[in-house]
């Protein structure tokens, strides 16, 4: 896979062809706000139309492991073609462009509200350009404003970090796979799952079994052990920011992650639920403290169309680096 380059704007190209009266930099120079919107728009475009390298690698490995001439390998072949075609045409991988979730990491003294406004502008622009479908519906009235803005949309989370630069990560979370995401409260007597890692393992595998092919598998999981109901679900989703080939720094969780993937792939659910070897691409786990009375395990299921990307912005708000 070729590395993505920061946005090449046609502006600079055409400017270089014309007799240069003004310095090229002039043509490229946007005011800081417009530049931020442009960079965020490019982040949305790439997230919606290209699979991150780590996911692509895992999917291609899964594809090679399916037996030839099976419905599973047929499905994986079409998935590969779709990844190539979406990138080539710069059009959404899937027509459900999902819940738009931003994670912004910024230095101290950063203006969050102003940045959120720019994110909203970029989202509206991305919707007009077709990188995002008109996908946000008012839950009370059923109205779709067609802009992807509304109560809680887009979802934006801010974190202060010690670096000088701003990092923006984006996840597009599809509806089909969100519908099979779930939360368990341990102990779970029907599954015989107690309040320990053995119990956690049972409920996670049960969630994958229950999802069957409905979440457009092969899927990837983010899991959080503990927390209250809300934090637990949020932290599970945040695990989707981890690269699929990284290793958990907590040894018990690292081995549990691997074991769950291996075990779930024995279920034989396969791509799209057609039956086959790859049911799960990855499982990423974290934990949060809980009160003694509760023990929640939250599972965020992501479809094969795993859309996540991130950028580092430089001082001028141009894209300095891609994170995935």
């Amino acid at each position: 896979m070729t590395k993505k380059l920061p946005a090449k704007k046609p502006v600079s190209k055409s400017a270089s062809k014309k007799p240069i009266k003004k310095p090229i930099a002039k043509a490229k120079k946007l005011d800081p706000k417009t530049q931020t919107i442009e960079s965020l728009l490019e982040l949305i475009r790439v997230t919606s139309t290209e699979i991150p390298d780590d996911v692509a690698k895992t999917l291609m490995k899964a594809r090679s492991q399916e037996e030839q001439n099976t419905t599973a390998s047929y499905a994986m072949g079409i998935i590969k073609d779709n990844i190539d075609l979406a990138k080539f045409k710069s059009q959404p991988l899937c027509q459900d462009t999902g819940t738009v979730i931003f994670f912004v990491y910024h230095p101290p003294g950063f203006f969050q509200n102003a940045f959120k406004d720019l994110i909203k502008k970029a989202v509206v622009k991305a919707t007009q350009k077709g990188y995002l479908r008109q996908n946000s519906v008012n839950s009370l009235t059923g109205e779709n404003a067609g802009t992807n803005l509304g109560e809680g949309h887009p979802s934006v989370h801010f974190y202060e970090h010690n670096k000088k630069e701003v990092e923006v990560k984006l996840v597009l979370k599809g509806g089909g796979c969100e519908n099979v995401s779930t939360q368990y409260s341990l102990p779970d007597t029907t599954l015989g799952a107690g309040r320990d890692l053995a119990g956690v393992r049972k409920v996670v595998i049960d969630a994958v079994y229950k999802a069957q092919g409905k979440g457009c598998g092969p899927g990837a999981l983010g899991v959080c052990i503990g927390g209250d109901r809300a934090d637990s679900a949020y932290n599970a989703k945040k695990q989707l920011l981890r690269k699929l080939d990284d290793k958990n720094s907590i040894p018990e969780l690292a081995s549990l992650e691997n074991e769950i993937v291996e075990t779930c792939n024995k279920l034989g659910i396969g791509p799209m639920g057609f039956g086959g070897k790859t049911t799960l691409l990855s499982c990423k786990m974290t934990h949060a403290n809980r009160v003694p009375a509760s023990y929640f395990v939250s599972i965020s299921y992501m479809c094969w169309a795993f859309r996540r990307q991130g950028v580092v912005l430089d001082k001028k708000n141009t894209i300095k680096k891609w994170l995935y």
Partner: peptide
């Protein structure tokens, strides 16, 4: 069954 997510293909 069509392939879920294969919007472009």
């Amino acid at each position: 069954h069509a392939i879920g997510g294969a919007a472009q293909v």
